[in-house]
Every structure is written in C-alpha cells, then in structure tokens.
C-alpha cells in the first residue's frame, strides 16, 4: 500500500497533468535496486510514482534539460528545493517554469544506511514550493566536522585530499548528477587548450577535484548526490562541506536559500574582505 506522501503525490500528479497545468511530472519510481527519476507525461502513469527513503537523486539536475517542454511539475526534498533556488538565482530556470511539490525528507538511504549528507542535513524541508505534501521533517541536530581535512595540520589535510582523489577514475558521475554543474562545456572537456590532463594520475585528479570544489563554493546545497554517485566512494561531501563552511564564514552565505540572493562568488562587493591583497 502506498504511504500517504506517495498517495498524495500520485493524486496531485494526475490532477496537474490532466488539467494541463504541467506537461511533465518529474518524480521517482521504484527501480530494481533504488528509486529512479521518473518523467511522467500521461495522467494514467501517475500511479508509477513513489516517495520513500530510496529517492536519492536530486531531481533539480534534470530541470534544465526538460524545461523546454513546458511547465514541469517536480517533487522536491529540502536539498532539491535549494538546488531549484540556485538555478533561479543563476537564471537557469524561471519560477514559472516549475510547479514544485515540496516534501519533507527524513533522509535518503545508501546501501541501507542513512546517506552521509543526510546525517548533517539542516534543511530537510523545502525552502521553496507551490504545495507542501505531508508533514515537515525535523532537521538533524548533528553537525559533522568536515572529514579528515578538518585536521589542524595542513600536511595531514593534504594527505587526506590526495588519498581520496587518488581513487578517482574520472567518470564524472559527480559532475553529471550535480544540479549546480550545468555548464554546456565543462573545463575538463575543452581540448584547445586542454586545461586538465585526461589521465587518472594524481596531479590530473587533484586539479579536477580542486577546480570542481572551487566551482561549488557558495553553490553547493550539500545534497550529497555526488558522494552517492561516486563508484569509488570518494568523500566528496567532506570537501564540499569545507568549502561551504569557508563561504559561510567569509560571506555569511548559505547556498540556495533565497531566490533573490546571489551566490557570493558570482558578484562583486566593494566591502568584501580583501586582506589577502597586498
């Protein structure tokens, strides 16, 4: 029997599609191992939709790819909704492009355990929505230190970083599942010039991951999709958390909370601290 949230999502999807308010409902359907993104266009297919703790993928990543079809209905957990805010802030999406079915989230599972990013989630409820489905969820009280690189010793932090990224096979799953990574051509895919070597040797891997992390500064909503997607179990979230923490300290900014704000690294403010400029 579908749980309450699933039942409401199915009903609302059917209504929104039937009335023509949306052309597609982006939600989740059960897969053989974990839930899969579902792209529902016919009201009669709404019964395929589910919502439970296996619904990990951040659906906001698909919005720029399907928005040309018309208005899209989308099921959004807290982190997904923050990604939508980020896409609005960066003009990748207009508010009228989406109808947001917000859901409170109790965390998603990875290998039957609560995903790392969900253990420290401070925003389990949607920050933007057209409708809220079900009960709001409680934020995690746990604040997790940013992994091995939190060590005071820079040598240890560097060792941690090298150790993690040495496993990278450059499949770019972290980039592809990330809603913040929407560039039509990524810096690693340019050949003239070739900014990053294509090998998996440590120097190439480090460069890719350093640039990826910096491009996430003030833009990562900490949904954890990258960490869950990584086939080599690289602790990308620790790196992201560290960058988020620095942005919060320096600029007082938390990514993807208010559509009218701008990520601090995309704008110039004469009052920014500039003590590093000699």
């Amino acid at each position: 029997m579908p749980n309450d949230v699933t039942a409401v999502i199915q009903r609302r999807a059917r209504e929104l599609l039937s009335s023509g308010q949306v052309v597609m409902l982006l939600g989740y359907r059960p897969g053989r191992s974990s839930a899969q993104p579902a792209f529902i266009t016919r009201p009669e297919d709404a019964s395929l939709l589910v919502f439970d703790q296996s619904c990990g993928p951040n659906l906001a990543a698909f919005l720029p790819k399907v928005k040309h079809l018309g208005r899209i209905g989308v099921v959004a957990k807290g982190c997904d909704s923050r990604s939508i805010v980020l896409l609005l802030q960066e003009h990748q999406l207009r508010r009228e492009d989406v109808f947001i079915l917000g859901v409170g989230c109790n965390g998603v599972l990875q290998d039957s355990r609560l995903s790392d990013s969900c253990q420290t989630c401070q925003f389990p409820n949607p920050v933007i929505y057209d409708e809220l489905i079900g009960e709001p969820a409680a934020a995690s009280g746990q604040l997790k230190a940013a992994g091995g690189q939190q060590s005071a010793d820079s040598g240890q932090r560097w060792q941690w970083f090298k150790n993690e990224v040495s496993r990278c096979i450059r499949c770019y799953a972290c980039r592809q599942v990330c809603p913040s990574c929407y560039c039509p051509i990524c810096f690693v895919d340019t050949t003239m010039p070739s900014w990053v070597g294509r090998t998996t040797r440590l120097s190439d891997n480090m460069l890719f991951h350093i640039i990826r992390a910096l491009h996430m500064a003030g833009r990562c909503v900490e949904c954890g999709a990258c960490s869950r997607a990584c086939p080599m179990a690289i602790d990308l979230m620790s790196l992201n958390r560290k960058v988020s923490q620095i942005v919060k300290e320096r600029f007082g900014h938390i990514a993807g909370l208010r559509a009218e704000e701008k990520p601090p690294l995309t704008v110039f403010d004469p009052d920014d601290r500039q003590e590093f400029i000699i």
Partner: peptide, 28 residues
Amino acid sequence: QALSLPCVNCGVCTFLCPTCRCFDVTDE
C-alpha cells in the same frame, strides 16, 4: 529518448563494464 531520460551520461557504466574498451590517445 524516453529510455534515456534518467541517464545523465556519466561514465560509470562504461568504465566499470568489463568489455568496454574505448580509449583516447593523448600526448603530454
């Protein structure tokens, strides 16, 4: 098109596949 909608075109399946064997040649 319909089948590929959930696919984000990362390289996980091809890199882990025991028969995928495409390569590029690069000079450094």
